[in-house]
Nucleic acid binder design. Structure first.
Lengths: 103, 103
DNA sequence: ACGTCATTTCGCGTATTTACGAAACATGGA
DNA sequence: TCCATGTTTCGTAAATACGCGAAATGACGT
């Protein structure tokens, strides 16, 4: 995870609706959730949600898979792990432990 | 670290110049670095840098302290830790380990 | 081929972000 | 007090992000 990739991921998460979408995807599990079900759960217009899902996908934070007629979006935990590693390696004082006293 | 706070921090880091400033502050250590020294090192206009430093401070990612005539900016490792904790608790599948196979 | 459901793309108006120079403000030394 | 240094605020112009409805695309059942 280099700086441009991290920036895309930070930007994707730096928006209330997108972060809510992503957290909901995480809670719903790795099996994925159809886009329209997310729209219902979060009361979002289809076109609005689609734009946010595209942003999350461009940032590598979600993956897609067609299932019958619908497209299931699933969180990409590796991307989250990459972000966490970036923060610990690049944004903590040499030792990652400086940022996580509890770990 | 709740969602609005995390969004502010993500937004602050989701910009090439600001992330470069923050990483430089981290490398320079907790003692802090004068703003104009950052401007020289990164070739930034004073007013541009000032805006970015203000954004980082509003997001809680840096702290300031006057020292003689200059203002030293220092990274706030607790904020980074809070972001990491948010990602591990809210954006991983129940168990934080899902995002960090190596830990 | 047709209609329908699921999703994306397009076009628009509006709001926010960004960089910059000029000016203002703050601090400390002569 | 006056001046130089360090930093922020202000005003402006260009770029980007946002939400929405309308229209287009894609996939399936009949």
């Amino acid at each position: 995870m280099d700086q441009p990739l991290a920036i895309d991921a930070f930007a994707a998460l730096a928006h209330d609706t997108r972060l809510s979408v992503f957290r909901l995807l995480v809670r719903r599990g790795p099996g994925g959730t159809p886009a329209m079900e997310l729209a219902r759960l979060l009361d979002l217009r289809p076109s609005t949600l689609s734009g946010h899902l595209s942003a999350l996908r461009r940032a590598g934070l979600v993956t897609t898979q067609r299932h019958h007629r619908e497209i299931r979006y699933a969180p990409n935990f590796e991307a989250v792990g990459g972000l966490v590693a970036f923060l610990l390696h690049e944004c903590c004082g040499g030792k990652a432990g400086d940022c996580l006293p509890g770990l």
